[in-house]
Design a binder for these strands. Structure first.
Lengths: 267, 267
DNA sequence: CGCGGGTGTCGAACACCGTGCGAGACTCTA
DNA sequence: TAGAGTCTCGCACGGTGTTCGACACCCGCG
């Protein structure tokens, strides 16, 4: 329903005004309808399964009809992204910021597993749709309630999000690759192991690590990795809060360097 | 030079034997040559700039000639990935595992900025080329020297890598998007800000955070985020080492729960 | 010398992709 | 009834990865 769906240098779909729909019987195609169908298509067939032609066909419409409702495919992806953002549950701060933040991370992670294609969409657009904003606000509230200063809230959220994104991205890339290309998993992993046994001759200890890892079933091993990682991230944030608290308590006695200065020196 | 470059269910290029090259005057095209040209193309024009046709043209050859040396594009990407992995500098453990690991992370991050397209390649293949293996070994040595148990080494490396990947991925996605699509940055950010001012009416505190952020120049803000994040990750690992050390010291006195159990409870 | 087979290159073709353009149909308002 | 807006869609353009079969070259062998 936009006056015309041209991109026209608008930074995000959301910044473009939409017109009220017409009279009574609306158009055959709706933006909501298109977005929902796109999500279904992506879930069912992965990122390569979504093409304008296929999406149109699924809706019983021509491919180019979609371009009335959406400027281009990127904009459609922006809409689709915010759509699934609406799936993640949020809750007001409970008083335990670590638990709240952990729950937020888990919620995000499970979203990404439910819709494996979203992971590639993080960062490709401003993510300022209604659901995205609500989510950002919920996370910010948790940290604010936890005593984080305004300037630190963004850093802390980014840390958690970036870790979850990176972790799930590598996990999923692997899973999807195997699912797509490999027909005989047994033989495939055996071949890989054969190669590694040879190639790791120069690095015997590495071979030991990986050999052990390869024997555990994959899903459990990956879960372990994530649980380890996210808990370390939380520990790191707690250390930060504690140190900053300590610094504040000794304020005036002697001017301690700021945490940012200490970080920068360390890095 | 492979007997034939068919994919044939081999899990990685590296697992396929290569034949000795022929007589004296080698072929017009070489695998090394192709890989190097591909890296140049990717650096110059981004991921979309690399197509088999364009790559062939750059080498003064037909597109399909490449398929003699490489089974398909994915395999080429695997080769290209390991090629740039050779660029990252490693050093033997210095005795300070935190400093070593931090240096490793920085090295990785700067690699990803030098070749923005690699970030999307992490996890899409086993990453077991010669350079990748050497790198993994170097990182493992650092942590082993730092007192990490074999089973923990993989977890810790994954944590650091995943954070760096996630952080750089979101950073780069944004940078590249702006660089590609936006002609008038000034007007673009202004429009975004206008939209946000309106859309964030329900979340006034969020508006304050972001408003402050938007005023700082982007590069500095992003750098700050990364420095904050990676230092929190390191803190988290240090806490872990310290706690485990404490646990070990009190061994036998009372059976404390393992760290993994504690993590799982927390998560 | 001749010749078979491996090595290497390549043009044509297939089935896709995103999307600009313009024609047309339908419906509401004046 | 005229006109303006809303909405659908066929065609076409220039790209993509990859398969297939034809072809040229050079080596060692008989």
């Amino acid at each position: 329903m936009p006056e015309s769906a041209r991109g026209d240098e608008v930074p995000t779909v959301w910044a473009r005004a939409t017109r009220a729909r017409r009279g009574q019987s609306g158009p055959a195609l709706t933006r909501e309808q298109i977005v929902r169908a796109a999500v279904e298509l992506l879930d069912a067939e992965g990122p390569d399964g979504l093409s304008m032609r296929r999406l149109g066909a699924r809706l019983g419409a021509g491919a180019t009809s979609l371009y009335w409702h959406v400027a281009n495919k990127n904009e459609l992806l922006e809409l689709v992204f915010d759509e699934v953002m609406g799936e993640v549950a949020t809750a007001p701060p409970s008083g335990d910021w670590r638990a709240d933040l952990l729950a937020f991370a888990h919620e995000m992670r499970s979203l990404m597993f439910r819709h494996p294609w979203v992971v590639a969409l993080f960062g490709t657009s401003p993510n300022v749709g209604p659901h995205g904003l609500a989510l950002a606000n919920a996370a910010a509230e948790v940290l604010t309630a936890g005593g984080f200063a305004p300037s630190e809230v963004d850093n802390a959220i980014s840390l958690v999000m970036d870790y979850v994104i990176g972790s799930v991205a590598t996990e999923l890339a692997w899973i999807l690759r195997v699912r797509r290309d490999v027909v005989d998993v047994e033989r495939w992993t055996a071949a890989l192991q054969d190669y590694l046994r040879e190639a790791l001759k120069p690095y015997p200890s590495l071979w030991e690590f990986w050999r052990a890892g390869l024997e555990m079933e994959d899903e459990r091993r990956r879960e372990d990795r994530y649980v380890f990682g996210i808990n370390r991230v939380m520990d790191g944030l707690e250390v930060y809060v504690a140190q900053r608290g300590a610094k504040e308590r000794e304020v005036g006695e002697r001017q301690g360097e700021s945490q940012a200065e200490s970080d920068r020196r360390g890095g």
